[in-house]
Design a protein around this nucleic acid. Sequence first.
DNA 1: GGCGATGTTTCCCC
DNA 2: AGGGGAAACATCGC
Length: 292
Amino acid sequence: MPELPEVETIARQLRGLVVGRTVSGFRADWHKLTDPEPVALVAARLGGRRIDAVRRRGKLVVFDLDGDEALVVSLRMTGKLLFREAGAPDGDRFVRGTIDFADGSALAFSDTRKFGRMILVDRTEIAPERGPERRLAKAPLHASLGMEPLSRGFTVRWLASFLARRARAAVKPLLLDGRGIAGIGNIYAIEALWRARIHPLRAAGSLRADETIRLQEALRWVLRKGIRFGGSSLSDYVDARGERGRMQREFEVYGRAGEPCSRCGGEIRRTVVGGRGTFHCPRCQRAPRRRS
DNA sequence: GGCGATGTTTCCCC
DNA sequence: AGGGGAAACATCGC
């Protein structure tokens, strides 16, 4: 999926397109789309609701409705939200569900791999931007999301304390766990670690103060740049207007195995960390002594 | 056709 | 706790 910058791009676009519109109907032909609720129940609760706001939390798109509920959309790997005006064509052949508005416009949810979900929740269930007060045992993602990395709370001090709490974890998989810091995905984790000159396998607790400062800066810099470029579009990924982002041309290491590092000339390597394809420059991101 | 890869999350095992 | 592996799916490239 779409990581934080892509979801932010989509939420901003949708804000201008659907806020104020009233839902007249919801249909879906993939029963797991609203899992664990049946589609018919979600449709019934959604009908007649007005969309008051559209925002992003982590990698989730949140539609705040009039009343106490919110529609939470998880795009996962290939989910797209495609807006269309009244009378415009349907979208692509992977549309799994559609929200119809009273004025004839609609919002389609297209998802090739069917991992995405649309669920209706009470607004109070969504974790606040600093994360839930205490760690929830077995809660759905929207309730357990951690710190927003672009919020004021994401300071060097907060990050240092977070890394200390999770001292034994490898830093890259830790960045990918949204319950700690929300919204960072594989690509932006890779790019931020390169910028901060930190090897993906370093233990979180082993980062020195200067490295922690660099990591905090790098995460924010990379995410903000992603937003400024309209997110990245790999393969056929598009935003809510059906357009491609431009961030993919800015990647320094992602997808660049074998190419020289733009900073030091070292040869960029592809490895697998925590089951995910990972790219780094072995020359300016020094490997830790050894990990088990 | 087979194999491996894909931007996410969750679950099970050790 | 945290790492490994697989699964939820479908498509694409070699």
